[in-house]
Every structure is written in structure tokens, then in C-alpha cells.
Amino acid sequence: MSTGTTIVLNKPLQAHSSILGKFLSALCLGVLLGLFGTFVEIEQGTGFAAIKAGPWTGWPRSEASEIDPYSRAILAYSGKISLSESEAMSFVADRDSDGGKFNSACDYIVTGALPPARFWTLTLLSPEGALIANPADRQGFTSSELLRSSGGQFEIALSRRARPGNWLPLDRASKFILVLRFYDSELSAPAAALDAAHMPVIVRGRCE
């Protein structure tokens, strides 16, 4: 009698445990997949709000509440919700105007047009957003200190070797990005209308 009862009870029990197993495995795999997807999206993505203009990617009014949740998560994760961001309209570049990834063994020239702003700054940072040490102790330029030609044109040279004029030293064997910030500019409102022609170009020169 006892064996009979066991057999009768066993069948639904097995079915239950297999359903539970499937449920749990789906739950675990789903959570893993979701987190992985989030990670990939945030590592690679720029969010819906990003503006592309030539080599530059910008986030209009980075921390304003209108920003979409994707962009906000990306900014929070990358630390780009920094204290300075919403004081300025910021653009980041990690490649030159021809689409080549920055290489600190090469020389680059930043030149060309700029949208109107009261002040702007160009800063060289590591991809993580840290300043990079260099013997010249120069990490960027402000619009006021820049040397310009008589026509008001400017050229900023990025190189490992000292350059005359506006020289931004590239540290040996380190990755870098450029951040362009506009203070008190009228950019924030019609930012979508911004196009590459109104932003500086980044031209690659000789490589070591």
C-alpha cells in the first residue's frame, strides 16, 4: 500500500519541481540577460538625447529634467553628471573628423568655426574624465587665453612634442578624449539645429 501511495504522489511532485526549475531558470537567466543588456547599452550608448555634430557628441542641458531615462542613466554611470556639466553645453570627441579613434602617437589640429558663446573651454581628459598629468601642466584652453591669428582664427595643436602657439601636450601611451564646453551660449534651446559646419574640425597629422 505504501509503495502505491508513493507512486501516485510522485508524479505530480516531479512535474511541479520541473515547472519550478524552469521558472527559476527563466528568472535567473532573464535577470542576467537584463543586466547584461543594460550594461552594454550604457557602455556603448549615447541615449536618445545625444546630438552629433562632426566628431562631437553633445547632450543638451545634461541634467535638466526633460532628459530621457536612458541618457540620464548613461550620464550617471559614466560620471558625466559632474558638477560642471549643466553650467555649460558640453561636447565630447573621442575621434578625429575622419572618424579615426584618437591615438596619442599622432598629432592633431583643432581648428575652424565655433557657435557663439560668451566663453568656451577645450579640455583634454582621459576617457574616464580625469585630467592627464604632463610636464607642461596644461590640460586645456579657454577662449580668452587662446592665441589667434589676425583674422580671429585659432589652431590648437595636440602633440607629444612641444608646438609653437596653442599646444596641448599628449601624454605618452594614454588614451584621451576632448571636451568642448560653451558657457553662456544660446546653444541650449535650438541645439538640434547644430551642424558640423559650426563646430571645430579635428584633423589628424603625422603619427610616430
Binding site: 558638477l83 558640453s90 579640455t123 579657454t142
Partner: peptide, 10 residues
């Protein structure tokens, strides 16, 4: 640095 992506001119 207190925050990443700070502008050194500020």
C-alpha cells in the same frame, strides 16, 4: 578630483 569630467578652468 572631486568629480570626473570637471572643467579645470572653473
Amino acid at each position: 578630483q572631486f568629480m570626473p569630467f570637471a572643467d579645470p578652468a572653473l
